[in-house]
Design a protein around this nucleic acid. Structure first.
Length: 557
RNA sequence: UGGCCUAUGGUGUAACUGGUAACACGUCUGAUUUUGGUUCAGAAGAGUCUAGGUUCGAGCCCUAGUAGGCCAACCA
């Protein structure tokens, strides 16, 4: 079979033909610890780690921690946990802050080569001088300070002699460049803010452009993969690398790919934190969030997430992937791996009038796709619950469930026939009375047990069933592309029904469930035991429903 | 009044140094089924943004246009 390579793998393949060997290859995943990782990051991780696996080269996990204003250790820990859960094995954990000293010395080298200078204007003035994409910028009046003066000022900046905003260090490139990033970008700013790792050792912090490429170089990264919006940064990336006094190693190559977008959700960290701050969701790990922690809590298996981003592929064009693909990946995995359980989410009482025994134990397969999972006992007796939706007094031919005078099989149990209903004063159905075919017991081998009836429905024994809480989710947004809108616009399309809490009844086998265990509730979908669930208060989160064929449920019948 | 990136069925990706479009999801049929699930068999759906050019031959190369995205943070 022909190997299907994405464009990045093709570049690497070419590089391998030329001046690179497999030993030269090295990758990195460089998140900023300023929030939770989302499914888009899984794409970046999968790319880097699968490349690492393919070429047997190392992949570093590097925290891009140059902005103490937004970053903290909790995010670092959550990210590490996410990688562990996803099963990505990195060579080592690095921090950009490990390189602060080296970066500082290299900055001095740039000053000495007249490639950097201290500017003493405020940020507004500097921004103004930068011009616009259509208009060239102007040189700063401080651009031609002497090397000695620059050295002294920069040293004083480092030693805390100035206030925030008083000076910055800038690269001396070209104020008339068509690329705004090349118009003397700021390399360092003064910030009196404690950093979660370097504490108060530094009061000047390097900015992204002066950090990233250099960090890649220090770690001997060969291919530095990032998203499309960094394309203009590449010119700067290369420029900085060229200025370094050190040229022992091969210079890393920045390659950009399109980030992942998912329909009906938002992906930008700014929007995600907005949802958290506004209290629209419960937190970063709310099951409706596209964060890794949220998807995990929702019940998506890590393997499904990885499979999903792998199928989605890597390219350079903007994309919005249909959420249906994610659900497909989840179902495919869950169908094979999750045990079945009968749970009634919206109960209707059924009395089997001709059932004389006090009750009995029946058996059900735990997973028809995996016989090694064995069977479980299921309690059956005279009174049971079925789904309200599974009964209609009068029905048409397409209704494969229970109705008066019609037969249906109770999964793993008997065939029953509905005889009459009992209604309350408002005319609502309170009970359905049925008769059962005693010889039709599932698996009993009798002729009657092999009878074909129109449908099979799930049920639970009324007396022995366990009440459970079920969180049912819909997408957070009603429109397909909420990410393209401003926060205020986005709010208008919030789905008010994205969370529905149901009280259901589960067969008693549910008592053995453990937090994060996944089940298929038969005929309903896939569910996970919430991480905060316990024996006295069992909580399930619905991951995704079973695939449903479009069937006409014409109410007039 | 600029620079850069992108353009292939509904969606996402393929098509190795040019040889008339493939895969997955989704959709639709049918079979099987004690889950309207799974599984199995099959179908429809694009002639590759537009116009030129090079070539025996272009989705791939060139030119121009159009459309979308990114760039004016002391964020990453």
């Amino acid at each position: 079979m022909k190997e299907k390579l994405n464009f990045i793998e093709n570049i690497i393949k070419e590089d391998l033909k030329n001046k690179y060997t497999k030993k030269n290859l090295k990758f990195r995943f460089p998140p900023e610890p300023n929030g939770f990782l989302h499914i888009g990051h899984v794409k970046a991780m999968e790319l880097n780690f699968s490349l690492g696996k393919k070429y047997k080269s190392d992949v570093n996990l590097r925290f891009d921690d140059t902005n103490p204003l937004k970053e903290n250790i909790n995010y670092v820990n959550e990210i590490i946990e996410n990688l562990k859960w996803l099963g990505y094995k990195y060579k080592k954990i690095c921090y950009a802050s490990d390189y602060f000293e080296k970066l500082y010395n290299w900055a001095i080298h740039l000053i000495k080569n007249s490639k950097a200078y201290v500017d003493s204007q405020d940020s507004e003035t500097i921004a103004e001088q930068k011009g616009t994409p259509y208009k060239k910028g102007k040189n700063s009046p401080f651009r031609d300070r002497s090397i000695e003066e620059n050295l002294e000022l920069f040293n004083n900046m480092k030693n805390g002699k100035y206030k925030e905003g008083e000076h910055v260090l800038r690269a001396k490139i070209d104020m008339s460049s068509p690329n705004m990033l090349m118009r003397d970008p700021v390399m360092y700013r003064i910030l009196y803010k404690e950093h979660f790792r370097t504490k108060n050792n530094w009061c000047i912090y390097p900015l992204y452009d002066w950090t990233h490429g250099q960090s890649d170089y220090i770690e001997k990264i060969s291919h530095s993969l990032c998203s499309l919006e960094f394309r203009p940064h590449r010119d700067l990336y290369d420029w900085f690398l060229k200025q370094l006094p050190d040229s022992k190693y091969k210079k890393p190559k920045q390659i950009e790919f399109a980030r992942l977008n998912l329909s009906y959700t938002v992906m930008s960290k700014r929007k995600l934190s907005f949802l958290v701050d506004k209290g629209i969701v419960d937190g970063w790990d709310d099951p409706r969030m596209p964060t890794i922690s949220g998807l995990r809590r929702r019940g998506y298996p890590s393997t499904a997430l990885r499979k999903f981003v792998e199928i989605a592929g890597i390219a350079k064009r903007e994309n919005i992937i249909d959420i249906a693909l994610l659900d497909f990946c989840a179902r495919e995995e869950l169908n094979k791996t999750s045990n079945r359980l009968m749970v009634v989410s919206n109960p209707l009482k059924v009395v089997i009038s001709n059932y004389e025994s006090k009750g009995e134990e029946l058996y059900g397969e735990n997973n028809p796709e995996d016989k090694s999972q064995g069977e479980r006992k299921i309690r059956f007796s005279k009174e049971i619950y079925i789904e309200k939706e599974d009964f209609k007094e009068i029905s048409n031919r397409k209704f494969h469930r229970l109705s008066i005078g019609k037969e249906v099989r109770l999964k793993n149990a008997y065939i029953i026939k509905a005889e009459r209903v009992i209604k309350n004063s408002k005319g609502e159905i309170k009970e359905v009375h049925c008769t059962y075919d005693k010889k039709s017991k599932s698996g009993s081998g009798t002729l009657e047990s092999q009878r074909k009836v129109k449908g099979t429905i799930h049920w639970v024994d009324k007396k022995s069933s366990i009440p459970v809480k079920i969180n049912k989710y819909e997408s957070l947004f009603l429109n397909e592309m909420p990410d393209t809108e401003k926060n205020e616009e986005m709010l208008k399309n919030i789905n008010d029904n994205s969370l529905e809490v149901l009280e259901g009844f589960a067969e008693k086998a549910v008592l053995k469930c453990k937090p994060e265990q996944k089940f298929q509730f038969q005929r309903l979908g896939y569910y996970i035991v919430d991480k905060k669930s316990d024996k006295s208060n069992i909580i399930f989160n619905k991951t995704v429903s079973l695939r449903e064929k479009r069937i006409s449920r014409n109410p007039q019948y």
